[in-house]
Computed example of a mutant assay.
Amino acid sequence: MTDQNPYTPQPGQPPQGYYQQPPAPKKKPWYKRAIIMVPLTLIVLFILFVGGCSALFSKAADEVDKDMNAEHTITYQISGDTTDANVTYSVGEANTTQETGVASGWSKEVTVKGFWGASLTASNGMNGGGTVTCQILVNGNVINENTATGDYASASCSASADDIENATE
């Protein structure tokens, strides 16, 4: 019998007490690793979100700019049987104009730009009793009308920027 040590390794086997490491797993390509994909996905989503928001804000800014630069022609009219009215009307932004001694049949065309509305007040003067009617027209359409009667009576009309814009559409 041959004297063989039971602890001697067989051919092709590692020595006793020796642990053989398993082969290293194959590394995934960098673009398939979760540690890369999660932040990369978040960055792409953020870029898409910012791009969408900027497109939305750009469109809104264009609409506001268009509305601010839109010109509207407003016609103010006084009718009735007044012969001595005082008229005050807006001519855009915060500018107003006043005319005195106005008789029935008076009309004024004003071009306004932007978001500004329109206002018109006609008051019978000392010598102008009777009826006074104010009208605000846009594109020939009456937007607002009011009538007052008597000495020193006042008729007031107003139209918002939305009223004017709706009349031009």
Rank of each mutant, 00 (worst) to 15 (best):
M1P: 08
Q4R: 14
Y7G: 10
P15K: 15
P15H: 15
G17P: 01
Y18T: 14
Y18A: 09
Y19T: 13
P22I: 10
P23I: 09
P23R: 11
K27A: 13
R33V: 12
V38H: 08
P39I: 12
L40F: 14
L40I: 13
L42S: 13
I43K: 11
L48Q: 06
V50L: 15
G51N: 10
G52R: 13
C53G: 11
A55M: 13
L56C: 07
F57I: 11
F57V: 09
K59D: 11
K59L: 09
E63C: 04
M68R: 13
N69I: 08
H72T: 08
T75C: 05
Y76M: 03
Y76W: 08
S79E: 01
T82N: 05
T83M: 09
D84A: 12
D84T: 09
N86C: 05
T88F: 07
T88Q: 11
T88N: 08
T96E: 12
G101V: 09
G101A: 10
G101S: 09
A103G: 10
S104C: 04
W106G: 02
S107E: 15
T111L: 11
V112W: 03
V112Q: 04
K113S: 10
G114L: 08
G117E: 11
A118P: 02
A118T: 02
A118V: 01
L120A: 03
T121Q: 03
T121G: 04
A122Q: 04
S123H: 02
M126H: 09
G128N: 04
G130C: 01
T131N: 07
C134S: 04
C134D: 00
Q135A: 02
I136F: 06
I136N: 06
N139Q: 10
G140M: 11
I143R: 03
E145D: 07
A148S: 02
A148M: 01
D151N: 15
D151I: 14
D151M: 11
D151C: 01
A155Y: 03
S156R: 00
S156T: 15
C157P: 00
S158T: 06
S158N: 06
S158M: 08
A159N: 04
S160V: 05
D162V: 13
D162L: 13
I164Y: 03
T168H: 06
E169M: 11
